[in-house]
Design a protein around this nucleic acid. Structure first.
Lengths: 352, 352
DNA sequence: TACCTTTACGGGCACGTGCCCGTAAACTCA
DNA sequence: TGAGTTTACGGGCACGTGCCCGTAAAGGTA
């Protein structure tokens, strides 16, 4: 019942080194005021004992608050996708609170690069110690990353990645593989004489995510010598009317489309179109467990949704920051999330 | 930078109630030695302030060690399925260690009821404060549950459930729905004139899991008026020779089996048979992300594996015990895991 | 040599809670 | 009424670490 394995602490180190705990403390936090000789002696003992600091006591004694921040898109009327990462962030927050960690979340508008830059500025000025970012805009993210490097603030990316930016970690899907899985599901029962339609609905012209996903999707067709012809369409407006107009045209040109693949969470717009135009025989696959999509999953318009546990991404992202800043533990640089397949039959148990 | 929101502690409560912190402490742990009057006064203040004890300080000050235990099947040569829950348990252990929580794992033989009872005995005698159990044997589990209730030891079930046993929580799949998902995947591209084969390979005669899964599987066929004839077979020996013998017979009797569904992780045995007998055109679905199965996923003999995040089950199970015993927080009684679909294309990112 | 600065270290309080021990006051009983 | 018992509470140390402050010793300067 009693704690017998009295895990050695600074006191024990101090006793062995014949110094006070304060000196040991100085060495542990490599502060000044210790002669080179004693420093070495103490370090040897620390190593020898494999000393693990007691985080409880450490956080209790420390009066410093650690400020973490997250910069993610606001929940818009278009999509509530970012509710999930937010909930993960909040979950992490409530766990870290007792350790004296505070979390601030900054929201930007997905349709406005400037709002990203603005909020990033605000966030940096708030004097945060670690940052979680959804790097939706490449150039703006690069600037933010540069600023973080200058100030030695660690940052993690979630949902999508921008390589070579010295992020502490990337937590999100392997996009190419994700597209690959989409292709597998789409072709699983597709007749070989049917065409396949790839749909990208996005205001952003240059979207890294999208390219990666489409590449993965196509590589499946290559790897398996799928005979199906692939048609693709970019739609730059996200409202239903525009989407419907474009799709009407495409379906007019291509009479024998058997399946459609939407590269992001706007698949519900396509579902709506298919339903309205009585084309529900077309297999439809898209992304993300958002309520609009689930509705069409329910009534069989969408066959599969692919998801990457956005909730978990938020949680793990914050935890990665916590690991480095509080525990001082290493963090894996690439953290690919599972590629989850959600159907009408299993969605009720899906935990984002 | 400084902790400004000095979250009120016992001292503040004591000040307001004009008593010492010791008295507040007595009330908080409802120990004796406090008059009814002051007790009420203090309780009011606690409620009013919505006092949250500082777990750090609490665990630091307490010299009590909390002993948690897990009773799970040993990893056998037949299956390494239980490696995953074990790893989750270990993960939880390493997180809880700093809070003065110790974890002991007891392994029993899945083919031997007595070993379950024996290890359960051993575990109880070790004086544990909370237990995680894989309730593989119904009667033996009931006895264990009764003993736990008598000693007021909370226990959680993982992987499969035995209702009405006053477990603190069940953490595992909704088996019926899981079978339902299996049926969906199996029929997704199945021709209507093909037969479907349900295979149960298990030494245990009365397996709760199995019945639930099969029921779910069949209910999908009912709900969707699937015309396919369903054939079923129970195989009581788990070795390859026996399985092959039985399957040879079944396939001999039923020439037009188009798909097979195995109700547990022994699907790799069936996969081996299908491969050896050149029947890989038969769609095959089974359970669990174990390495033998993944091998057959790799070479397209198994089409889909259904998984329920066994690692997470172990982790969450231990955490549920931690929640009640250390944090004293409520725990949800039913915790259904996601029904994950694993394919050749996405398995490399699957996180058990 | 007298005085000041720097270096290297120890003492000790604080964080919020758990809990042992001590003790007035109230109560009990012969 | 006096002695013993119970009740109700306060004092204060401990947990392991962070960090402020004090200070002896060494070094530097005139």
């Amino acid at each position: 019942m009693e704690k017998e394995n009295a895990l050695f602490g600074v006191k024990e180190i101090a006793r062995r080194a014949k110094v006070s705990t304060a000196t040991v403390d100085r060495v542990l936090h490599n502060r000044t005021g210790v002669s080179e000789k004693t420093k070495q002696r103490i370090n040897e003992i620390i190593k020898e004992m494999d000393y693990q600091p007691n985080i409880l006591a450490s956080r209790l004694a420390s009066r410093k608050v650690i400020n973490l921040a997250a910069l993610i898109p606001d929940v818009s009327e278009e999509t509530d996708f970012w509710l999930a990462p937010l909930s993960g962030i909040r979950r992490a927050e409530s766990e870290m609170k007792q350790y004296g960690v505070q979390v601030q979340v900054f929201f930007f508008d997905l349709n406005d690069k400037d709002s990203f830059a603005e909020k990033a500025r605000e966030m940096i000025d708030a004097g945060v110690h670690g940052i979680l970012v959804s790097p939706s805009f490449i150039e703006e993210t690069k600037k933010l990353a540069a600023e973080c490097s200058r100030r030695k603030i660690p940052f993690v990316f979630i949902d999508s990645n921008i390589p070579d930016l010295q992020s502490l970690s990337y937590i999100g899907p392997h996009l190419r593989k994700s597209g690959y899985v989409g292709a597998k599901l789409l072709t699983y029962r597709l007749e070989s004489d049917k065409k396949v339609l790839i749909i990208n609905i996005s205001k952003e012209v240059d979207n890294f995510n999208y390219h990666e996903i489409e590449e993965g999707f196509r590589s499946y067709f290559n790897d398996h010598n799928q005979p199906n012809e692939i048609v693709r369409i970019d739609i730059r407006e996200t409202d239903y009317q525009s989407v419907a107009r474009h799709l009407t045209y495409v379906f007019h040109l291509n009479k024998d489309i058997g399946a459609a693949f939407v590269t992001n969470s706007r698949v519900h717009t396509v579902a709506s179109f298919l339903k309205n135009s009585h084309r529900t025989h077309v297999s439809l696959i898209g992304y993300d467990f958002v309520k609009e999509n689930v509705g069409y999953l329910e009534n069989n318009v969408i066959d599969f949704l692919i998801c990457h546990r956005p909730d978990d991404q938020g949680y793990r992202g914050m935890m990665a920051l916590y690991q480095t800043l509080v525990i001082n533990a290493p963090v894996t640089k690439q953290n690919f999330m599972p590629i989850d397949i959600v159907t009408k039959e299993n969605y009720e148990f899906y935990q984002n």
